[in-house]
Simulated scan of single mutants.
Amino acid sequence: MPRILIPLLLLFSSFSFANSNQTVYVYAASSMTQVVERLIEKAQGQGIEVKGVYGSSSSLARQISQGAPADIFISANTQWMDYLEQQGEGVKPSINIAGNQLVVVSGNKDVRFDRLDDLSNWNKMLDGQRLAIGESNTVPVGIYAKQALQNLGVWQSLSKHTAPMKNTRAVLAMVERQQVPMGIVYVTDAKQSKQAHLVSAIPMDLYEPIKYPALLLSDRSSANQVYKALYSKEMSQYLLELGFTPLTQ
C-alpha cells in the first residue's frame, strides 16, 4: 500500500470513530416519537447525532436490560422504569417529563359516546367487531385502558372482544385503516392523526396517572446534553403543543 494512503486512511478512520462516538441512542415509547424527532433536530445544531429507537416500553426495557446500546430511555409508565432502576441501570434517578390522557377514537367521525359505563353503548358501536387496545399486561397504553374499563365495569365483557397491539401506534394504525371500529390511545395520538376521530375522552380518575419518566443511562457528555434538553423550557412548550402535560418530579 502506498505510504501516502496510510495517513489518509487513519484520518478517515479517526473521523468516523469521532462521529460514532457522538451518536446518542434514545430508546423511547412509541408515543414519544415526535418528541425524540425534535431532539434529533436540536442535537444536530450541537454536532451531536441522535438516533431514536421506538417501541413499547416493556419491549425496550427488556432490550436495555439485556445490553442494548441505549443512552437514554423514555418510558410511557413508571413500572418499566422501576424495572430498570431496580437492576441498577441509570447514571442518576429518572425524571418525569410529561403526562398524557386516554381517549377513545374511531375511523368514523360520526361515532359518539354518551356513557362509557354503559356496556350496551360499546356493544352497539363495536357491532360484533373488536376494540383495539395495547396488550393489557405489558404495554402501558393497554395497562391504562384495562384499568379504565375495569373501573367502568365493562372490562369483563369487552376483554373477550379486543385486538391487543404491541404499542399505541399500532392501535392507532388499526383505527386509521378502519380494521376495527374503535380503539383506545393517548390523546396525543388522536391529535396528530387525520384519519382517527375523537369519540370520547376517558376520565383521568379511572386509571393511574400517565407519566413519562426519562432515564440517563450513559455518562457521556453528549448524552447528558440531550437528556437535559428533555426537560428544558422549550421542550415543555413543545410537549404542550403535542397535547402532553409537562411534568417536573
Rank of each mutant, 00 (worst) to 15 (best):
I4G: 04
L5Y: 14
P7G: 09
L8Q: 08
L8K: 04
S13A: 15
F15G: 11
S16H: 12
F17C: 11
N21K: 15
S31I: 09
M32W: 08
T33D: 12
V36K: 02
V36P: 00
V36G: 05
L39E: 10
E41T: 14
K42E: 13
A43T: 11
Q46V: 02
G47A: 10
E49W: 04
G52E: 06
S56C: 10
S57G: 08
S57P: 04
Q63T: 03
Q63W: 05
I64Y: 12
P69S: 08
P69Q: 08
D71R: 11
N77I: 06
E85P: 05
Q87K: 15
Q87R: 15
G88V: 06
V91R: 12
V91S: 04
S94M: 01
N96P: 06
L102Q: 11
V104W: 05
K109Q: 14
D110W: 01
L116K: 04
N121Q: 15
W122M: 05
R130F: 06
A132F: 04
I133D: 02
S136N: 15
S136E: 07
P140T: 11
V141W: 07
V141K: 11
G142W: 09
I143L: 13
L149H: 02
Q150V: 14
Q150S: 05
N151K: 09
Q156G: 10
P164A: 07
M165I: 00
V171C: 03
M174P: 01
M174E: 15
M174T: 02
R177M: 12
G183Q: 01
I184V: 15
V185A: 03
Y186P: 00
Y186R: 00
T188Q: 07
D189F: 05
K191D: 12
Q192Y: 04
Q192F: 04
Q192I: 03
K194Y: 04
H197K: 09
V199C: 11
I202H: 03
M204V: 15
E208G: 06
E208T: 15
E208Q: 11
I210P: 13
Y212C: 01
P213E: 02
L215A: 04
S218D: 11
D219L: 01
D219Y: 01
D219T: 09
R220N: 07
Q225M: 09
Q225W: 00
Y227K: 10
A229G: 02
L230P: 07
Y231K: 07
Y231Q: 05
L239I: 07
L240Y: 01
L240M: 14
G243R: 07
L247S: 06
T248W: 03
T248E: 12
